[in-house]
Design a binder for these strands. Sequence first.
RNA 1: UCCUCGGUAGCUCAACGGUAGAGCGUGCGGCUGUUAACCGCAAGGUUGUAGGUUCAAAUCCUACCCGGGGAGCCA
Length: 501
Amino acid sequence: MIPDHSSIDSLSDCVGEEVTLRGWLYNKRSSKGLHFLVLRDGTGLCQCVVNESAVDDTSWSAADDATRESSLELKGVVGIDDRQIGGFELQVSSAVLIHKAEEYPITPKEHGVDFLMNHRHLWLRSQRQWAILRIRNRVTMSIHEFFQGRGFLQMDAPILTGTAVEGTSTLFEMEYFGRTAYLTQSGQLHGEAMAMAFGKIYTFGPTFRAEKSKTRRHLTEFWMIEPEMAFYDLDGAMQLAEDMLSRIVSDALRDCQAELEVLERDQEPLKRSIGGYPRITYSEAVDILKSEKTAQMVANKIVAIEQEQKDIAAESEEGKAAYGQAKKWQKRKTDAREIEIQRRTNEIEEELRNLPKWVESARQFEWGSDFGGSDETLITWNFDRPIIVHRFPHGFKAFYMKRDPEDDRLALGMDVLAPEGYGEIVGGGERATDLSFLQDQVRAHGLPEEAFKWYFDLRRYGSVQHSGFGLGLERTVTWICGIHHLRETIPFARTLDRLYP
RNA sequence: UCCUCGGUAGCUCAACGGUAGAGCGUGCGGCUGUUAACCGCAAGGUUGUAGGUUCAAAUCCUACCCGGGGAGCCA
């Protein structure tokens, strides 16, 4: 059956008409002879008013019995009401209770992370998750449209592989008919083979890292987009990454206003992130990191958050002083604010502990080592949009990176760092094309040469300059959404300690 | 692997050595325009597990289990 009911996001076309809505009860408020049902159908929310005097007994008891997340079919006339969420209201003429939900565990009040993650299959129904996952969908579609529009071929790289692409990361191992197979950590090498066959390709698929990372920036299973382009140099790859991200950002701003508002995302940083990404070399980034300007910036930041700390402490005291004679709803408001103040206070205390350490480690930074998380953050604080850092010391980069012909200490790699502390979302560069250089590198990195025989063939038969990069989907969505943690940007996050649900 | 914080009612938290409480949610009752509606009543607990100290442990100590944040590494 193809359902013939209306969806909440199309109610603007039906004002004054009778429609049927099907969905789930998001919230209910009642007084004598009236039920205000907030219906959720996946496209939006709509308040539906059931008046005892306007419906028959069956409809009234359906509304009466309906519990949170019960499924309902509601028929009624659409009216405009600016006070309501979504801007419309349904005057119900008949209601059918499709299924009465048991006591629903997720309430409108706050919940802890552990509880919510254990109920992820239900958490997905709430507003915030709706907004985030719709933005993820928009980002996914933007990426496909961007590459398809530029003549790229989408390819599916294998998920089971026999080798590690970059010896550094830990891989998930599995028994494979008496041999060892791994879950892929990158589709790049296979992407290069496809690029030599089709010119420009991109992969869009899951990747796996068995790193024991327990942070808000890590998943063990995440989605990566890896374009690979024959005849592109490093500059070409950087321009492509900038164009792709600009497209993602502008599409989200155009199509996801409702979602960004639910998330209370400050859109100014996104509006600035369309084009004009500064390119800075690793060496320039090191200079910025060690500069007096950066140290001064952090010092200013410390002063600012110390002031904020005092301000919110004062606000907290005021709330407590007024608490005694406050009305119940005021107390509740104060309580809610107090929780927020506590959370922010803890954050500030952690920042005040960390910032001096960050400055110190930045001061001590030596040319040739890799940036840590705090170094990246300090560098990006100097800019108001994504930046592209390029030409790194080859020591900590992958074996397949091409050396800079102008400076043999450097590899032609590049990273895109998102602003606002979101950090690395793209990593890539120009690939080495010379067979004997690659063979040396594989040996130098301690990788099994025989596993790369097929890869070496790409340098035997018409080797050409080529470049590519990998985009982390969840990190990108986290940045667009302006949210704190990666785990909310994928329907079912897989982390170190979580395989359920 | 290391550092750090936490585990009390279905949920979020309080009690910090002396009879375990509140709000939300749930149930019942009231209210014809509510916006996390509101008002009243009620039910709801071997304080993560196992030891130990004490006249007395949610509270102090030890070990373990579970989870959060971070380092390293990375997208």
